[in-house]
Amino acid sequence: MNGSIIIAAGGTGGHISPGVALAEVLSEKANAFGYESVYIHSLVRNQNNPDLLNPPCQVIWHNIPQLGGLKTIVYPFLFLFPFIKTILLFRKLKINAVIGMGGYSSLPAILYAILFRKPLYLCEQNCVPGKITRVFSKFAKKIAFSFPIVDSFQIPGKIIGNPIRKRVIPEHLNIRQNENLHEGKKNTINVLVLGGSQGARQLNQMILKTMENAEIASKYKFRLLTGTNLYDETKQKANDGTEIISYANDMKPNYEWANLVVARSGAGVVAECLVFGLPMILIPYPFAADNHQKANAEYLEKQGAAVTIHSTSDDPTPLVKFLLSWKDHSEVLREMGHISLALSNVNAAYQTVSYFFSDSN
């Protein structure tokens, strides 16, 4: 055996969820690829992340400081002590391969791989590669992309798809939520609104204002996941026709209920919508690093699986326009859903692991 594998998956849920999906596969298949075991390396502040409450393997917690602000000058000193602890622990656990999921929290594991000449593999979730991928791509043995990266970046790798956790994967992949709409068996179109775990006030307010349109209220039913911090204020403003939920640990029933999704365009949410064959209205978070959400949304819009609203306000006008145009033309949603499904890869986790650790790839 070649020791163990560490998956550096900290930071945001967009890094953690696909890392956990890879850990699910490797916890069962590590021996088949010549390794003894697999670990997840994540930040202490992620201990309450839903994906890490019941992880498929042991999680090693660390507390590497975030780079930025006034700490920049003294950062090397703040970084050094926890990094030395990481090295000693990794040596003890016989870590002989590193998978970096992106974000600053993956830096200790990546530097360990480089310093001790261990195989380094990188996963890039977005169409615009993150700084970790851009800086360390030349040290990586292989890089897996979730989506095609924008043309301005020349980074070698393989487009596979964003790894999906087992508990999110549909049980019946042949079920198409929007077939019944096209056949006229369903009068109501279910709209799932996702602002992320922290919520998005812009999306919440936009939906509430959209529902003031009588034509839309008569045709569309909304389920709004507000985010825990924004639940109370949104609930107070909502009318009786809106289903308000703060957060859902189990997203599968919500995706199965939906015919259409309104969401930010983070790679994780987008990938999950794709495997359920869902059309999307994407409202990119304008302050995302390198504006990567904009690039993700534009890729999906170009393919025909989504439409994009570029806005920083809660003005419902563009959303109302889309919904009214589809009110009597649900075949448009059906076709968008087919394209969405065609862009998905429900087996991305296994294929990524196979790509990394099979010599033939």
Rank of each mutant, 00 (worst) to 15 (best):
N249L: 12
Y104I: 10
Y350T: 11
Y39V: 09
D232G: 06
L93D: 02
P108W: 05
F356E: 09
N162L: 13
L53Q: 15
S330C: 15
A248T: 00
A271Q: 10
H41Q: 07
N190H: 09
A23F: 09
S17V: 11
K186C: 12
H182L: 14
P253K: 10
V20C: 09
I143C: 11
P129L: 08
N239C: 04
I175N: 11
L120K: 11
I159G: 10
R223W: 00
I87H: 06
E256R: 12
L173K: 04
L111W: 08
F145Y: 12
A289M: 08
L67E: 06
S358D: 11
A8F: 08
P163K: 14
F147P: 08
V353N: 10
I60N: 06
I110M: 06
H329V: 00
P108L: 03
K131V: 15
V262P: 00
W61A: 13
N296C: 11
A305Q: 04
N291M: 15
E301W: 02
I189R: 06
T210Y: 04
V74G: 13
E272G: 14
E24H: 14
F136I: 07
S358A: 07
M251I: 10
L67C: 12
A214L: 12
Q236C: 15
L53N: 13
I60K: 05
K185A: 03
I283M: 07
V261D: 00
V20S: 11
Y220I: 05
P318N: 09
K85N: 10
L122H: 05
K142N: 06
G337F: 04
V346C: 08
A289C: 07
A23L: 09
T242S: 13
F79I: 09
V261G: 00
F276H: 05
P318K: 03
L208G: 09
G161H: 05
Q198K: 12
N213A: 09
T86G: 07
V74M: 07
K141G: 08
A258W: 00
Q154T: 10
C57L: 11
K131S: 15
L107K: 02
K118A: 04
P148G: 14
S146H: 07
K138V: 09
L224H: 00
